[in-house]
Design a protein around this nucleic acid. Sequence first.
DNA 1: CGGATTTGATAACAAATGTTATTGCCCGTG
DNA 2: CACGGGCAATAACATTTGTTATCAAATCCG
Lengths: 192, 192
Amino acid sequence: MFTPFRNKFLPEGDKWDSYVNCFKRIEVPAKTILLKEGEISKKMFLIEKGCIRVWYNNNGKDITSQFFFENEMVSSIESFRKGIPSLTAIETIEPGIIWWIHKKDLNRIIEEIKEIPRLRDMFINTIFERAFDYMKYFFSAIKDTPQQRYLNLIKERPEVIKRVPQHYIASYLGISTVHLSRIKSKLAKAKQ
Amino acid sequence: MFTPFRNKFLPEGDKWDSYVNCFKRIEVPAKTILLKEGEISKKMFLIEKGCIRVWYNNNGKDITSQFFFENEMVSSIESFRKGIPSLTAIETIEPGIIWWIHKKDLNRIIEEIKEIPRLRDMFINTIFERAFDYMKYFFSAIKDTPQQRYLNLIKERPEVIKRVPQHYIASYLGISTVHLSRIKSKLAKAKQ
DNA sequence: CGGATTTGATAACAAATGTTATTGCCCGTG
DNA sequence: CACGGGCAATAACATTTGTTATCAAATCCG
């Protein structure tokens, strides 16, 4: 059994099995749409193998907002939580193995978690950390040049550079593919 | 008594007085530093009158990350929560009246709140909303042109345009003061 | 294996944005 | 009232970044 969150989130002991049985396993090819733009999100995904991007359409161009890899959970979080149409789509980049849980089941688990102080605090902490992350992404988008953000990405998420096609990375950085190519070639020259 | 959060956050009845007594009132001139960059935040501020900006230094230039007005709460949230040195400074723009609460007192209040399901859920919801906000700011910084972000600001926070000196707005948008001037003059011409 | 599609690099030109310098206005203070 | 500092507009020039087009390499698929 695939158990990435056993020690991280879930209580040990009896509850475990009832939680784990809520997850369904699927195998998907590359470029599978797991959630369409405009659809209301009912599933949270957990990646056993593969990689996923979250993107949205901006005047015909698609912009990638995030990448996810093994052992990470993915959902269109605002749609999932509020039951509103998703601004973003969720799509696999590589073929992979995904586990998913239905919103109803996850909500039931969360309600139980909120009654256990240690888990409740972990839950709150996770939301805070996610907020801090977005805050830092926002700051970086304002203060750093595209080149600097590319260097940050190399340093903090080398996985992305290795596994993700370059045009998705460019759209994530908010620049054209041509400009990303230029940055790479400039860095390669500087390194010599 | 100044009670902006009475209905929003705090329980009615007995607890109220003990909570409200934790807040201290100060009057401050413009350009008062309420928290220095690098300092560990111990206070959360609540603005009765005036306006505040949060900013950080980036290679000698200062960049404004947020503006706050009446009835809003301000802190260097990551420093405040984790007890680490603040990346940002907090500074008044106008002379004003500020209420502040010490971290110890606020933590005590939060611990009590977390035991009351309705308030606990509001607390969790507030953190989620803050995370969604930062997420949207991040998306906007990537996908929108500076001109579009300026128009968004006019629409969503007209207060900022009216009360804040333009060079702070430019630093908030991540552009030079010259470029902001150009955007304004371009928009003025287009409007004629 | 071979053709189609995806991916990435580069050149040439256009548009957006930054830098520096200058000017003028407004406003607080002596 | 005069003066200085903070603030905003504008011009001239430099740099960054986008757009479009072309080509080559890698990869997928029948």
